[in-house]
Amino acid sequence: MTMIKKRYSRLRGAIFYCGLVLITGILSLPALVAISTSFKPYSEIFTTNPTILPQHFTLASYQKLLAIPEFPVYLLNSLIVAAFSAAIAIAVGVLAAYALVFFRFPGRRVIRQALLTTYMFPAITLVFPVFFGASRLNLLDTYTILILTNLSFALPIAIWLLLGFFEKIPVELERAARVDGCNRLQTVFHVILPVMLPSIMAIGVFTFILGWGEYLFALTLTLTDAHRTASPGMHALMGNYRIDYGLLTAAGTVIVFPLVLLFALFQKHIVEGMTSASHHRL
């Protein structure tokens, strides 16, 4: 009896596992195809019976990519813009989230709700006024405007996630620090930040990921290669090298690779952050 039951459950387990592998395979196929294309020689890319994995592994596409002088500039620009906007979002967001969690003051609920609602604002509505504002202020095609526009989503998201983490800090811990002689700002630096460091870094990484690949603002607010980030850069490449999918997929792989690395490293904390954020009230 138990034998049969055991065998039955093992069979079910096997079927479950096969199904899971199949689904995961299908769901990762698009990415897999793109990555494998970037390692294929020309003849294998432009064929009517392509294979999933390259038959002859080659870095030719990457070599071609290296020969494009703008490409590293795009990556560098993305790095600058994403890093600065993530850093500002974290710095500003930590102060705001601290105030919303540990202070009691009139208007707290309203400000909290207003800040949290802003992350639902449509970027497409912001982009025209920002464009004209930027051109009036001579900020078109600068890092400054890209960093600022990235904050329009990075900051609300950072606050949203930070609130989830901070609400898990026991209030007594913050109070202990103040009894021990910290003022509020010292409390943030000596206790809140160190205690929450991994989580805060994860949030930084997450906003960095979003900033790195931001599309709409970067497309409309940059005019020259000097300030193009990865997204509009890629957009330009897709125009210039229309059908050279070896080169394009290589570029895409290079653009995504750091994000995958960062995400894999900080996944636990990012997921944890989303988890606590998804529970907390507005």
């Binding site: 026991p170 007594e172 109070r175 202990a176 009894v179 002689g181 910290c182 206790v191």
Partner: peptide, 20 residues
């Protein structure tokens, strides 16, 4: 006066030790 200026010491119900 802020807590610092009142100069009191407190032991909390759940200890609240600095974990780091």
């Amino acid at each position: 006066l802020a807590p610092k200026a009142r100069d009191v010491a407190m032991v909390f119900q759940n200890y609240a030790l600095y974990p780091h």
